[in-house]
Design a protein around this nucleic acid. Structure first.
Length: 401
RNA sequence: GGAGGGAUAGCGAAGUGGUCAAACGCGGCAGACUGUAAAUCUGUUCCUUCGGGUUCCAUAGUUCAAAUCUAUGUCCCUCCA
């Protein structure tokens, strides 16, 4: 299958700036870029789709560049809701290093940092060389800016679009980069870049955006209880990732497999048939988890995550030997049992946020210790055991030693 | 610079002197049912040694009593210049 058709089939194309791009994509040999701002020192699951699409293009014979926004990260990409908090320069610098390392290891893309070419542009040149190409009316008409007119937007964030556009121009001129790939929220910025290139050089550049991937409630893929799922194994364990992926709802899982794995159309269609017949086996969720975790963390980490999950969810925790627990929880964070009663221990370890909450959980039979329901808030963990395993709710486990 | 409007729990939003730890919706958490799914239903959602304690942008005040009134400050929005 040609690349473009494959991307469409996988649901990865929301819009392209010009139908000519279809043939260019199918032909191979383009230099393109994706960008990310260093708002954290690791990518999270939400970034995965745009990085994976870049890898698909790369594998097809295109040439990817990752732009890390050391400059734009200092400015802040306008969100639809409100102004971003400024990140200090030190933190941005640290995040750039973290991201660079991670992307090199995982994807092997060429990496550039827009700070390198933005840092020496002075204000007057900026206004003369770039500002003059942007009509404010045009900028105000961009969806993202329009949405911010009600809550307000600072001049700083308003200018973001111009910097991103000049980035594209810079890569176009220095690296013959003719395509920018991003999530749908970047459409305004991408088109601004394309137009700047056209106005300045008279040549064509292209943009491709992917749809936002959400579940049936419109929640972004990868969003869980407020804390992000990081790609860095030391920030989010394979087990945590496995739990997220194995719980993906049936109605979305095939779509996710298409978007997030490198399995072929034939393989995926086969899985789909099997899954439709026996959804209760979660075979599709298992494939999704296997593919993503193996890609990110490797085979061993995936197998351990799977094994932990099987043991925990088979309900035989109290039958596990210390050695088995040792092995299975090798990488899992363990909490220190300080022999205080639950109402102190679980608060101190942030398993529960307050005693009131703990009492609520105890009353609802939602706390199991080593496989048995406990209702007493003064219960003290058995210090003769090497490990005590506390289950909170149906799915969350904590290991105490 | 001028005129007006606003700031309430994670978010949206009601409340305009006591009956307010603050309606309602979303989100979160837990329980039931299931397949570690979805949908649905139920409970819960500031802290507490269960006596009470600390909240409604901040500070100072009025009052027996303030989320509610006054002053000042901070931030935001709208319109005019």
């Amino acid at each position: 299958m040609k690349l473009y058709d494959d991307l469409v089939w996988r649901g990865l194309i929301q819009e392209i700036s010009d139908p000519k791009l279809i043939d260019l994509l199918n032909a191979g040999g383009l230099t393109f870029y994706i960008g990310t701002d260093p708002t954290a020192d690791s990518l999270h699951i939400g970034h995965l789709s745009s990085f994976l699409i870049s890898k698909r293009l790369k594998d097809y014979g295109h040439n990817p560049i990752l732009l890390i926004g050391g400059a734009t990260g200092l400015i802040g990409d306008p969100k639809p809701s409100n102004e971003r908090p400024m990140i200090s320069k030190d933190v941005v610098e640290k995040n750039v290093l973290g991201l660079t390392k991670q992307v090199k290891e995982l994807f092997g893309f060429e990496i550039v940092n827009n700070y390198d070419w933005c840092k020496d542009i002075n204000m007057l040149d900026f206004l003369r060389d770039y500002g003059k190409y942007f009509n404010v009316n045009y900028m105000l008409d961009k969806d993202i800016i329009r949405r911010r007119m009600e809550t307000g937007i600072t001049y700083t964030e308003f200018s973001y679009m111009i910097i991103q556009a000049l980035d594209f121009l810079h890569l176009f001129e220095t690296k013959n980069c003719t395509l920018e790939v991003a999530g749908s929220d970047q459409w305004g910025n991408i088109t601004a870049g394309i137009e700047l290139i056209r106005k300045k050089t008279g040549k064509d550049a292209y943009g491709l955006i992917m749809p936002l991937i959400t579940d049936s409630n419109g929640v972004k893929f990868g969003k869980t209880e407020g804390n992000a799922l990081w790609l860095d194994e030391s920030k989010t364990s394979s087990y945590q990732l496995y739990q997220y992926l194995i719980n993906v709802e049936d109605s979305e899982v095939i779509r996710y497999i298409k978007a997030y794995t490198f399995l072929s159309k034939e393989e995926i269609e086969k899985i789909e048939v099997e899954f439709k017949e026996h959804p209760e086996t979660r075979c599709a969720q298992k494939v999704l988890a296997r593919e993503i975790i193996t890609f990110l963390h490797g085979q061993n980490s995936f197998e351990r995550a799977e094994k932990i999950s099987q043991l925990l969810f088979s309900g035989k925790i109290d039958e596990l030997s210390d050695n088995e627990i040792d092995d299975v929880f090798k990488d899992a964070p363990k909490l220190k049992n300080d022999n205080t009663p639950l109402n102190e221990l679980l608060i101190a370890t942030s398993v529960c946020s307050s005693r009131r909450e703990l009492r609520e959980l105890l009353n609802a039979n939602a706390i199991l210790i080593n496989g048995k329901v406990v209702n007493d808030e003064n219960y003290v963990l058995d210090s003769n055991r090497k490990y005590n395993i506390i289950r909170k709710g149906k799915k969350k486990y904590f290991v105490f030693y």
